[in-house]
Design a protein around this nucleic acid. Structure first.
Length: 109
DNA sequence: TACTTGACGCCTG
DNA sequence: ACAGGCGCCAAGT
């Protein structure tokens, strides 16, 4: 019942949580899934609050496959470490084989 | 109530 | 092909 009061942010967390292990998605893909194609920025902004939630924010990158938000993680390369820990190859803040690892919620669902 | 910010994306030069 | 600027939407102050 109160679920209807879910803010845009919480909706984003739900989608990010659906990202399978070893896969990555983009802000635009999430926004598109939520019907807010023009609100890709909001998705990234929502991730700021994701620190208080259990959300694999490190699996979310921009549409170029760049770890733009890595600066928001602890340390400097924690985000990259987490991705590599899942078997994702990252080099120079850019995910290698990105289109292959790309997970689109609209397609998966 | 209004202004500013922001982990992006697309268009134009 | 590369770089820079503008646009959009929601939340916080």
């Amino acid at each position: 019942m109160k679920e209807q009061t879910l803010s845009f942010f919480e909706s984003v967390y739900e989608v990010v949580r659906l990202v399978p292990y070893g896969r990555v998605t983009t802000y635009g893909a999430i926004a598109n899934y939520l019907g807010a194609v023009r609100s890709a920025r909001m998705v990234g902004y929502a991730m700021n609050n994701s620190h208080d939630k259990q959300v694999p924010a490190h699996r979310v990158v921009n549409r170029k496959g760049l770890l733009t938000g890595k600066h928001h993680f602890e340390g400097t390369n924690l985000m990259q470490q987490l991705l590599e820990n899942e078997g994702i190859r990252v080099e120079n803040n850019q995910i290698q084989n990105f289109e292959n690892l790309f997970w689109d919620p609209s397609k998966a669902l």
